[in-house]
Design a protein around this nucleic acid. Structure first.
Lengths: 127, 127
DNA sequence: GTTTGACTTAGAGCGCCCTCTAAGTTCTAG
DNA sequence: CTAGAACTTAGAGGGCGCTCTAAGTCAAAC
């Protein structure tokens, strides 16, 4: 016996992912979904748990500054099957380097901001 | 005796700050400089060390995601004089919170990416 | 003095990533 | 059965932050 998961509506998926329905449709349109989202007989989208989890991961790629075009490259590799595992890994490794650089830059900027703040603190309350 | 610093040309300032000349003019135009940049008799801009250092700091605000409009607010407070120290400090403190949140989000995304990478590593080279 | 490249301005254009609109269909509650 | 909310599409619109263009002036090297 197979229980067919009816899936979530787009607004439930939006709720679950923190994106808007508009953005979910947009992501699908530009080829960021691994697979076209299922449809109810009414043509309304039905998001599976897998879809939602994938959107979660792609949001992590996006939030670390991966351009949509690169996410799409990654997705296309993934769709091409198991033979592309190494290429996908390398893409993520390259991205990883850029994420580390971001962390470094932000951390350095934070230090400069903190220095400024401490100067103001002196000025405002020279205890 | 006062030695008048001739200042740097815009392209020297660009070199020094890592921004383009276009961007330096743009920043000035939208009100991000503390003071209008000096001019040579020829009307060409001459950037002082202070200008360059200020651009350095504003780049740190920008690179941590502070919108130009907020940088401008900060600049306007600074131009308004010493009485605004506390307001400037508070603006930076609010920004600091958002920078910490960014660091946190990026760090979490990095962890997810690393997890994916390790899965691929298993698949590619199941030593 | 002349050439070559850097500089000036105002304003247009662009790339990215959504975000919204319009017009129509479907679902849900009462 | 009906009202109203949610969904659909294709495509337009918008915000942000640059980035470039055009037409002209100026500087530095020869």
């Amino acid at each position: 016996m197979t229980i067919i998961d009816p899936g979530r509506t787009i607004s439930e998926a939006a709720e679950a992912t923190g994106l808007s329905s508009h953005t979910l449709r947009y992501y699908e349109r530009v080829g960021l979904m691994l697979v076209p989202v299922d449809r109810a007989p009414s043509t309304h989208r039905r998001y599976s748990d897998l879809d939602v989890r994938w959107v979660g991961f792609l949001t992590k790629l996006r939030s670390t500054g991966m351009p949509i075009a690169t996410v799409r490259e990654y997705v296309e590799l993934a769709r091409a099957g198991d033979g592309t595992s190494e290429a996908r890994m390398e893409l993520l490794l390259r991205h990883r380097v850029s994420v580390l650089a971001q962390l470094d830059e932000i951390t350095q900027s934070l230090a400069a901001i903190d220095t400024k703040i401490s100067i103001y603190r002196e000025k405002v309350d020279p205890s």
